[in-house]
Design a protein around this nucleic acid. Structure first.
Length: 104
DNA sequence: GCCTTGACAATTC
DNA sequence: AGAATTGCCAAGG
């Protein structure tokens, strides 16, 4: 399992109406502190629910129209905002801890 | 291999 | 509140 594949697996695990932060994705994939890796994973990740990945504090990282697109997709799924940020206390997704050393 | 690039994050001023 | 600073890690040139 490649590094980026692990990150993408985490991203793919986020259900509709939920969101996760870049940092949490990296952490759940086994790279605490490497939030930027999540960005890389998103690049080649066709078919991923990219709109469910937000910056720390529920901020929308994308600027311009892409950001609007993300807000739209999220609100369609039932995600609510407050002051331009996703209400993490309501929609934050906590992925199950994975054990990457051995498959089961 | 070294250097740069990212849709980041936490800290500090 | 906002800018600057530093840490983080894999890919690609």
């Amino acid at each position: 399992m490649s590094t980026l594949a692990r990150l993408r697996r985490v991203i793919a695990s986020v259900p509709q109406g939920k969101v996760i932060t870049y940092g949490q994705v990296a952490e759940a994939a086994g790279f605490p502190g490497a939030a930027r890796l999540t960005v890389r994973a998103l690049y080649g990740g066709a078919g991923l629910p990219w709109h469910r990945v937000v910056a720390a504090g529920g901020r929308i990282a994308l600027m311009g129209e892409d950001g609007q697109e993300q807000r739209l997709r999220l609100s369609i799924e039932g995600v609510t905002f407050r002051g331009g940020r996703v209400r993490m206390e309501l929609h934050g997704w906590v992925p199950r801890a994975r054990r990457w050393h051995r498959e089961r």
